[in-house]
Amino acid sequence: MILIIGGAAQGKLDYVLRKTGYSPDQVAHTPEDAEHLPIFDGVEGWPELDEEALLAANPDIILICDEVGCGVVPMDPAQRAWREAVGRLCCRLAARAERVERMFCGLSMTLKGDSSTWN
């Protein structure tokens, strides 16, 4: 599994499509679709994701998640809890990932693993 993180509109999906040669119709936007598609974009929308089940069904998946923990801390307790849940999910995913990359301004930074081993 590969984890790609970064802020909104930083080029994460374009980067993954360019590196892998996959097309936009091969991108999942729900956990159910992610069980059989090679890329799951929008992981931050699913903070209660059952990563065990997903990775058992699709161990080579590329997960794309917006960073949500930077910036002003929301006043709304529910928004703070959501950010916390997404952050903890990303920590678990990063620990299990073969590679983790962060995108910023369309540039990738390898945080874990070998970036030269793309599919």
Results as ranks from 00 to 15, higher is better:
Q10M: 09
E48A: 15
D33M: 13
P24A: 09
Q26N: 07
P47L: 07
Q10H: 10
I39S: 05
D50G: 07
E44A: 11
F40S: 10
G42H: 12
Y22H: 14
V43Y: 06
P38Q: 07
H29N: 03
D41L: 03
D50Q: 10
T30Y: 06
E32F: 10
D41P: 04
L17D: 13
D14A: 15
T30M: 06
V27S: 02
G11N: 05
P47E: 09
L49S: 09
V27T: 01
G21A: 06
D25G: 04
D25K: 12
G42A: 11
S23T: 14
D33Y: 11
A8H: 11
F40V: 05
D33E: 15
G21H: 05
G7H: 01
P38D: 06
P38K: 04
D50W: 09
H29W: 03
G11T: 03
D41M: 04
V43C: 11
F40N: 07
K12P: 00
A9D: 13
V43A: 11
S23D: 08
I5C: 12
P38C: 12
H36T: 12
E48Y: 12
L37T: 04
E35T: 14
Y15W: 15
A34V: 04
H36E: 08
E48D: 15
E44V: 01
E35G: 13
I5N: 05
L49G: 07
G11E: 03
E35Q: 15
L17C: 12
P38S: 11
W46A: 10
H36C: 12
Y22W: 11
Q26C: 07
G6Q: 03
E52T: 14
K12V: 00
V16H: 00
K19V: 02
P47S: 09
T20Y: 09
E51I: 12
D25W: 12
G6Y: 01
G45S: 10
P38R: 03
R18H: 14
Y15H: 15
L17S: 13
V43L: 13
E32G: 11
H29E: 02
G21W: 03
P47C: 05
L49D: 08
G11D: 03
V16N: 01
L37N: 07
G45Q: 13
Y22E: 06
D41C: 09
E35R: 15
D14Q: 14
A28P: 02
P31H: 09
S23L: 09
G6C: 05
D14S: 15
A34W: 01
G42N: 11
G11M: 01
V16T: 07
Y22F: 15
V27D: 01
G11C: 04
V16L: 04
G7R: 00
Q10T: 10
W46H: 15
D41N: 15
Y22N: 05
I39D: 03
D50H: 11
Q26K: 14
A34F: 02
A9S: 13
H29L: 01
Q10I: 00
G11F: 02
A8D: 08
H29D: 00
K19G: 04
Q10V: 02
H36L: 05
P38T: 11
D50K: 11
T30E: 06
P38V: 13
G11P: 03
T30L: 05
D14H: 13
E32H: 13
D25R: 12
G6N: 03
W46Q: 11
K19D: 05
W46F: 15
V27C: 00
L17T: 12
H29M: 01
P24M: 03
